[in-house]
Nucleic acid binder design. Structure first.
Lengths: 233, 233
DNA sequence: AGAAACCAAAAAGTCAGACTTATATGTCAC
DNA sequence: GTGACATATAAGTCTGACTTTTTGGTTTCT
């Protein structure tokens, strides 16, 4: 998943990125390129490339005579897939999970509504296929199989919406769903009501009923919010 | 606005970024670092830093023995503020404007609902202030003054939602609104109904009425969709 | 004493050149 | 045609010297 070990500068990022997003260097901390280069045992050129990438993510700012300063979280490019991965993998995981779930609750219903209007027959077929796969794996601790279809389902919805920015959230949603299964509490079989909702969404999209698709998806995301205690019961 | 001229590599990006996002290099095009360095009259080290940044935006991929290849639009990090700016400034502007407006229509209503629950008294005050400023500038071709308050209004809503990912969309929304005033057709005074809606949203947030704040904001964004002919009348 | 001008050190920024490594592609034998 | 092998290519890496900006302290003048 993603882009592992693409060169030396990538290795550096794999260490520095998670460290910064985890808050190991509080905002305002100052790093020096040469020192970092020594610490990671790479040349300054490689280190500079890594710093440039962090800078383009607004994780740090590089200024002459002062050094590379860590920026406050409010400056971070929180939509950068790399940043999201780093945060999901580290100490910032709960916060990232919450904000992503709220984002999902806003985006996915609208995406489903658009999908009902724009989905191709192939996408409709794939959607029902996914929903059926979820049903088939909804009992008997077949969490892995369930997850695969769940991820595929939401990815198709986002793609079929026809909006490039929605489509780009597919990977993020996938990581959220996968995380819920693997890290969070998810011992029992999935909620039967949720499974039913997915089937109904697939049907609504196929029927071109945007209103219904949106409303049903809203119910799904409300469920996700409840799981994280973001909504009062 | 943003980060102009932060070093030589930034200058290179200011040319290459817009060129790529405008589609001047079709997907699959191959660039060579050395050739680019010559073309921009910079050292290879500087050029490499620029390429690294483009790579972190998934605009290009760098592979040994082949070169720097331009990636298809579906790979781009379309949430990167820099990418958004480049696209809004170039040939891809209409597409970017549409997808951003659809994103707004999904996010802002939910953000307004959350703002109604979480906004501080100061934020509520600022919000009504903005709304009043919009009213005051809604007649007599005072578009500039209107725009300032409109931008501030939406920024407060997104910030007050308490969700970091929503808050980060403030800059983007600002650029969309500014673009609508400056580039798009916007000769007459703003729609009075829209002005009223903003005032009502401010009131709903102050009253803590999440449901109403969300619904009213939805009406605002529906208006924005209509402006771009995304919704049927 | 306070402000203005000045100086020196520090760290990022830039450049040039040599070298390494992976890999796409063409060549040859079978 | 298939597989092994050689070769050329372009990215990747390292090093060292040099430039530029900026900060913080020092000196000087009012």
């Amino acid at each position: 998943m993603s882009t592992p070990g693409r060169g030396l500068h990538g290795r550096v990022l794999d260490t520095l990125g998670p460290a910064i997003t985890a808050g190991e260097y509080p905002p305002g901390s100052v790093l020096r390129t040469d020192e970092l280069a020594q610490r990671f045992d790479v040349s300054r050129s490689v280190m500079r490339e890594a710093v440039r990438v962090l800078e383009s993510m607004s994780l740090v700012a590089s200024r002459r005579r002062v050094g590379v300063t860590v920026l406050p979280r409010t400056e971070w490019n929180v939509y950068d897939p790399q940043v999201i991965r780093w945060r999901l993998a580290g100490a910032d995981r709960p916060r990232q999970l919450r904000s992503l779930t709220v984002l999902r609750s806003a985006v996915e219903p609208v995406a489903a509504g658009l999908a009902a209007q724009h989905a191709t027959p192939e996408q409709c077929a794939e959607l029902t296929e996914c929903a059926l796969g979820m049903v088939a794996n909804s009992r008997g601790h077949r969490l892995q199989g369930y997850l695969v279809h769940d991820i595929a389902f939401h990815r198709v919805i986002l793609t079929a919406s026809g909006n490039e920015m929605f489509a780009r959230l597919g990977d993020v949603v996938a990581e959220v769903l996968a995380g819920r299964t693997h890290h969070e509490v998810m011992f029992e079989d999935p909620d039967p009501a949720a499974v039913t909702l997915h089937v109904q969404v697939a049907e609504a999209v196929r029927a071109g009923d945007a209103e219904r698709a949106e409303q049903l998806t809203r119910e799904i995301t409300v469920g996700a919010l409840h799981e994280l205690d973001i909504l009062a019961p």
